[in-house]
Every structure is written in structure tokens, then in C-alpha cells.
């Protein structure tokens, strides 16, 4: 079972280069307080992640990450930032310590899990010989389209994708509710009069 070992190929250098860039970007995101820079770094992070996805043979995911993560997400964060603030204030030290403890515990739990993980790229890992393998074998007969990812996405696991469309739809509805017609600017403080009562079309009906 454990006879597979990840080969030491020159490609590892490329992977390591991308990974170290990812780490550097993430670290910069932690430190930088100018939100514009943080958002841009987040876009860069997504692009690097997309690059890494290509090296992991996940071209569809790379495409999506580049379009969604680096594209639309960045645009949304920029517009969101323009409407909110340009700089972050220094964090309270107490929060930092709590965050550090939680991260260390979580990280340790994940590290613990890696000890028993199959080596990276193992073709005989359980993940790669069960259902995943089945899709590769069956798609040509069952569905007859070359892109196995599309076949799984739209047919085998089509219901997940329907759910995903509904998630996007829900986000659209959520943003409409929060920022669309009829939404307040902000919200009501406890002592304020109830806002918007005069402007709503309640047609004066008494329930």
C-alpha cells in the first residue's frame, strides 16, 4: 500500500516557487493595512492559486478561480471598499493572541491529519481509486463528452450544481435586499424614530 513515493522531479521547483509566492502574498495580506493593497493582493493570490491549479491538472478550476476569484471577487471587493473604508486601523492585541491560539490549534489538528495522508500525487490513494476513477472510466460510455469535469458537474453531480446556481441566486437576492430599492441607508439606532415609515406605501391600512 505504501509503496508509492512522490517522485523528486524538477517540476517540484516550479511548484515550490508558486507556493512560496502564495505564502509571501498571504503574509503581505496579513500585514498590509491599506485596503486597496489588500484587495489587490487578494486578486494576485487568486491568480497564483489559478496557476497552481494548472500545475495540479485542474484546468477548469484554474479557469474559474481566475475568472471568479481574481476577477469578479476583486471587483466586488474594490467597490465594497470604496463604499466603506480605505485603511484598516491597528488591531487590538488581545484579539491577536486569541486568533493565534485558535490558528495554532487548528493548524496542529490539520498537521496531525497529514501524518497518515497518502503521499502527494499517489495514484493508489483511496481518493483516486474509488468514485473519482469511476467517472474517468464511465464518462466515455455514459455521457460521451471529452471533458470529464463537465460531465460530472452537469450530469453525475448535476444536483450539486443546481444547488450552486441557487447559492448564486440567493446571493443576488441577498444583495438586492441589502442594497436594492427600499433598503435603508444603514439602519436604525435604538433611539431614532423608525426610519422609512413615512415613505413606505403602507396605504394607511390598519391590520
Amino acid at each position: 500500500m505504501e509503496d508509492f513515493q512522490t517522485p523528486l522531479q524538477p517540476i517540484i521547483l516550479l511548484d515550490l516557487a508558486i507556493l512560496s509566492l502564495l505564502i509571501a502574498t498571504a503574509f503581505a495580506m496579513m500585514r498590509v493595512r491599506r485596503l486597496f493593497a489588500v484587495v489587490m493582493l487578494s486578486g494576485i493570490f487568486s491568480f497564483l492559486a489559478a496557476l497552481f491549479f494548472v500545475s495540479l491538472d485542474a484546468v477548469d478550476v484554474a479557469f474559474t478561480e481566475a475568472a471568479v476569484g481574481a476577477g469578479i471577487s476583486t471587483v466586488l471587493m474594490l467597490t465594497g471598499m470604496l463604499l466603506t473604508a480605505r485603511r484598516e486601523k491597528p488591531a487590538v492585541p488581545g484579539h491577536k493572541n486569541i486568533a493565534m491560539v485558535i490558528c495554532l490549534v487548528t493548524g496542529a489538528a490539520l498537521f496531525y491529519a497529514t501524518i497518515d495522508m497518502p503521499a502527494f500525487g499517489d495514484p493508489n490513494a483511496p481518493a483516486n481509486i474509488h468514485i473519482g476513477q469511476e467517472f474517468v472510466e464511465r464518462t466515455p460510455q455514459d455521457i460521451e463528452i471529452p471533458n470529464i469535469v463537465t460531465a460530472v458537474l452537469a450530469s453525475y453531480r448535476g444536483f450539486d450544481t443546481l444547488g450552486e446556481v441557487l447559492v448564486v441566486f440567493a446571493a443576488g437576492v441577498g444583495v438586492m435586499l441589502l442594497l436594492g430599492a427600499g433598503s435603508l441607508r444603514g439602519g436604525r439606532k435604538v433611539k431614532d424614530d423608525r426610519p422609512g415609515d413615512d415613505e413606505t406605501e403602507h396605504d394607511g391600512r390598519e391590520f
Binding site: 469578479i72 463604499l83 463537465t150 448564486v168 444583495v175 438586492m176 442594497l179
Partner: peptide, 23 residues
């Protein structure tokens, strides 16, 4: 697959634009 992908495309494009318009 073509039908559902078309549905996905329409929904995602219009939702993303809705969100962008609102922001």
C-alpha cells in the same frame, strides 16, 4: 448538459451583474 449549462450561464451572468449594479 447544454440546457443546464445555459441555465447556469444566464443565472451567473445576470446575478453577478445585479450584484455589481447594486454596489
Amino acid at each position: 448538459i447544454i440546457l443546464v449549462e445555459l441555465g447556469v450561464g444566464i443565472a451567473v451572468a445576470s446575478t453577478m451583474l445585479t450584484i455589481f449594479y447594486h454596489f
